[in-house]
Structures are given as structure tokens and as C-alpha cells.
């Protein structure tokens, strides 16, 4: 289970950017922010003008746990994972 606060802070980011020498960029996606709305899918689509049916960036929905008994507290989790093409 991801912990609260497990995200990159502005300070860490700035420190990383300030390092000298060649940079290799990484795409950091904070999954706690992601609400699974697919705005990134559309942004990528509009930006690259891909044909209908071709989306480079999709959001995958992962369902964990099973809930069958309303008399018990449900233990279900759903995670949204944006899957960029990394280009």
C-alpha cells in the first residue's frame, strides 16, 4: 500500500535539476494525484494528432481485493496508472 507523502518534493526536484553534467530525464507520475480521468490521454492525442483509435498514452485501472459481503468493511483498492509511451 503506498504511503502518504511518498512523492517527490519540490526541494528534491530542484536539487536534482541543479546537478551539473548530462541529464537523463525521467517521467515521474505521482499516482496519488491521478484520479483516472484520462485527461493525459486526450492531451497526448491532441498534441500528436493521432488517428481515432490510436492513443499513445492510456490509463490502466487496477482493481485489488474482492468485496462480496456488505456486512463487512470492504477491502477493495483501485489504482490508476497512466501508461505513457515514454517518447
Amino acid at each position: 500500500m503506498p504511503e502518504r507523502g511518498a512523492f517527490i518534493s519540490d526541494e528534491t526536484l530542484q536539487a536534482s535539476m541543479a546537478k551539473k553534467g548530462p541529464k537523463q530525464y525521467t517521467l515521474w507520475v505521482d499516482l496519488e494525484y491521478c484520479v483516472g480521468c484520462s485527461a493525459c490521454t486526450m492531451a497526448c492525442k491532441a498534441e500528436n494528432n493521432t488517428p481515432v483509435g490510436v492513443d499513445y498514452n492510456r490509463v490502466v485501472e487496477i482493481e485489488v481485493g474482492e468485496f462480496k459481503d456488505p456486512k463487512e468493511k470492504p477491502e477493495v483498492r483501485v489504482y490508476f496508472v497512466p501508461m505513457p509511451c515514454m517518447h
Binding site: 500500500m1 503506498p2 484520479v35 483516472g36 480521468c37 468485496f67 483501485v78 489504482y79
Partner: peptide
């Protein structure tokens, strides 16, 4: 279990 519920329970703090 809406997307809002998914986010509420994401870090274990909220509930559905």
C-alpha cells in the same frame, strides 16, 4: 466504489 473512493482509500486514510 467511485474514483473518488479509490483516491480516498489510496493511502489508507479514507473509507468507502
Amino acid at each position: 466504489f467511485s474514483n473518488g473512493a479509490a483516491k480516498a482509500t489510496h493511502s489508507g486514510a479514507g473509507e468507502w
